[in-house]
Amino acid sequence: MTTDQGSRRTGSKLADRVALVTGGTRGIGAAISRSLAGQGATVAMGYGRDHERAQEFLAELQQTYPDGAFSVHPGNVATADDCRRTIQDVIDTHGKLDILVNNAGITRDRTVLKMEDDDWDSVIQVNLSGTFYMAQAALKHMLERGTGRIVNVSSIIGEVGNIGQANYAASKSGLFGLTKTLAREAVFHLERAGKLQDNSIGLTVNTVTPGYVNTEMVEAVPEKVLDKIKTRIPMARLADPEEIARVVHFLCADRSSYITGQVWGVNGGMDM
């Protein structure tokens, strides 16, 4: 069981809130799940195929927060039907959905000249289309209730590009336009429905763009390559997953209701 700072109860900003984190059982997603739980949220976690890891992480949260409510939900975010089913499963399990964090993502790195059709299609489908499908289903429920939070997890690669990652960069930069459009439409529909009130916590949509983060994915990168990357980061180090998670839970809080359609960089100054 993990007992680091990201796993302990740190506040109650998200008490009585239900959150769904896609890709929420490992890496940045696991840190986000812990951070939301640490602020009192009920947390549902989407995952792909690693059932054993999902159950282990579920048990960890249940042990850390015995008074909390948690669940895991298998599915393929590249499939629209799976996204809609997962959203409905969370609502059926916990009674509502207040927060959606679109964190699930994949990489298939090749230079443009060597990239196969499936390399392009699969990354776009998971990282960009999956975010749209999840947000579309969640937004309908949130608009009916008049409140909600959607936070999309992009990447610094979507801002600056990277050799061998045309598919990933395109998918992550696509989240910027999607975020701003969802944010505008959320307010538009609330106003039409007469739910845009001064005392409302609102329905906001934002994006967080991590830089290089110390996760399992980065552990596979050769040390010499990592050293070179660190020379390009003004703070000269990688981020801890918890540093990304703290920004996510801040954007999910009620008092962040005046922040929407924004892109939040958490990259150690790598892109200014």
Rank of each mutant, 00 (worst) to 15 (best):
H249E: 15
V43R: 08
G24D: 06
V225H: 06
G24N: 05
Y168L: 02
V43L: 08
E60H: 06
N162L: 10
G177P: 10
I106F: 11
A78T: 04
I150P: 03
D82H: 14
L113F: 07
E56I: 08
S171R: 04
D227P: 00
D227G: 03
R9H: 03
L128E: 01
P241C: 06
K140I: 07
V208A: 10
L251D: 01
A138D: 10
M115K: 08
G211Y: 11
L178H: 10
S171M: 06
S257N: 15
K224A: 15
I229E: 01
T79V: 13
V266S: 10
M115Q: 13
D118M: 13
T2M: 09
M270A: 12
A54L: 03
A80S: 12
L20H: 11
E60F: 06
L226R: 15
G158S: 06
S7E: 01
E159S: 14
I201V: 15
E242G: 13
G95A: 11
Y212Q: 04
W264P: 00
V21R: 11
L182Q: 11
A183H: 13
N206F: 09
T93Q: 12
T131N: 10
G211W: 07
G265N: 13
L178A: 06
A104T: 04
Q125E: 10
I150E: 03
K230R: 14
R237T: 13
Q197T: 15
D240F: 11
V21T: 04
I150H: 05
L139N: 05
T147H: 09
T147P: 00
L14Q: 05
L58T: 05
G161Q: 05
R8L: 08
H73Y: 14
N152T: 02
N267Q: 04
F132T: 03
D98I: 07
F57D: 01
K114A: 10
N199I: 09
M272V: 10
V151D: 05
K96C: 08
V187N: 10
K13G: 14
S33H: 05
V153R: 02
T10M: 08
V263E: 15
N267A: 05
I233T: 10
I28S: 09
V213S: 01
V160Q: 12
S200N: 09
D50S: 14
A183K: 11
T25G: 00
S200H: 11
V112W: 15
K114D: 06
K140A: 09
D271I: 13
S7N: 02
A186S: 15
V221C: 12
T215M: 06
E159G: 01
D89N: 12
I157V: 14
I233K: 13
M272K: 09
P66F: 12
Q63F: 04
L20E: 00
Q165A: 07
T209N: 14
G146D: 07
A15M: 12
P222G: 08
K195C: 07
K224T: 14
G38M: 04
D119C: 12
Q165M: 10
G211I: 10
T86C: 11
M217C: 02
D98P: 09
T215S: 12
L58C: 05
M45Y: 11
P222E: 02
F70E: 02
I91V: 15
R184E: 05
V77L: 03
Q63R: 15
L61R: 05
E60W: 03
G261M: 07
M115R: 13
G48Q: 11
